[in-house]
Amino acid sequence: MTRTLGMAAVVLTVLAMPATGGAQTAAPAVQAGGGAVSFGADGGEYTSTGIALRGRAEVVQGQNRLRADSINGTIVSGDLTRVEASGNVYFVTPDQTIRGDRAVYTFATDEVVVTGDVILTQGQNVLTGGRLVYNTRTESARMEGGAGSSGGRIRGVFYPERSGN
């Protein structure tokens, strides 16, 4: 099932990160007009090939936030190319929340893939499944079924907007 959602794009680009001890640090975003990216965690590491945030890890750009128990990023030729979040993952925008067990954001494809008991909420609307693929450029989402209580099916409740009332 494909449904276009009004989710604003998020770019989780961090160019350099000193070891953090719970401090929140800002780094410039690569995408023009994307704004600064800030991040925080109970601890972290930076190497030439990646970053690792552990314990209440959070990456924020504008009003969009990715929060998880841990967030790891892959750096290739000085650029952050991929971010992986695991454990109690939440991707939050002003309009909606995506919750799952794991999320992978790949910059080259503009895709965020959230897996593991995924719950997407937008206002009163709720969509659940096992895997959600969201494209930050086109703002389209595709939910797939998965194992669990839903028997591999996606489920949703949508409330139509009423105009003129």
Rank of each mutant, 00 (worst) to 15 (best):
A16R: 14
T2S: 13
V104Y: 13
G129K: 05
T20I: 15
I98H: 06
P160A: 05
A9F: 12
L53A: 04
V104G: 12
E144H: 05
M7R: 14
A32G: 06
R162C: 07
Y46S: 14
G44Q: 03
L15D: 15
A36M: 11
G100K: 05
G33L: 13
T2I: 09
R102H: 15
Y46E: 05
R56G: 12
G151P: 06
S77Q: 15
T109K: 04
T74A: 09
V14D: 00
T128Y: 04
V60N: 03
E144T: 01
T136K: 15
A23H: 10
M7Y: 14
V114D: 10
L132I: 05
G50Y: 04
G123S: 04
Q61Y: 05
G129I: 05
R3C: 00
G21D: 14
P18H: 02
E58T: 12
Y159L: 14
G33P: 11
Q61R: 11
V104C: 08
V89K: 11
G6L: 07
V89S: 07
Y46H: 11
V118K: 08
N165T: 09
V60Y: 04
F91E: 07
A52Q: 08
N64A: 15
A27H: 02
V10F: 13
A103C: 02
E161H: 12
Y46V: 01
T47C: 00
L132C: 03
T4D: 11
A68C: 06
G22E: 03
E144A: 02
V133K: 08
N64L: 13
G164R: 10
G21L: 08
V114I: 15
D69G: 09
I98A: 11
T138W: 07
N72Q: 10
V133E: 07
R65N: 04
P160D: 02
R153P: 01
R137C: 06
Y90P: 01
L120C: 04
M17H: 04
Y134S: 02
S163N: 10
A23T: 07
T93C: 00
S77L: 01
L5W: 12
I51H: 08
R142D: 10
D42H: 03
A41G: 05
G50M: 02
F91P: 02
G151K: 05
T47W: 00
G130R: 05
I51W: 03
I154K: 04
A41E: 05
V114N: 13
V10E: 11
L127N: 04
S38E: 07
G151T: 01
G145Q: 03
T4G: 09
N64I: 03
E161R: 13
G116E: 02
E161S: 13
F39S: 02
E144Q: 04
Y105M: 13
T128H: 07
V60E: 01
G33C: 10
L127D: 00
R153G: 00
G22I: 01
R162N: 13
G73N: 02
G22N: 06
I75C: 04
T128K: 14
A85T: 06
V104P: 14
S140T: 12
F91G: 11
Q122F: 02
T97Q: 14
R99T: 12
A141T: 06
Q124W: 00
A103W: 12
D42Q: 11
R162H: 13
A52C: 00
I119A: 08
S48P: 01
T136R: 15
A32F: 07
A41T: 03
F158E: 00
R54T: 07
R102N: 10
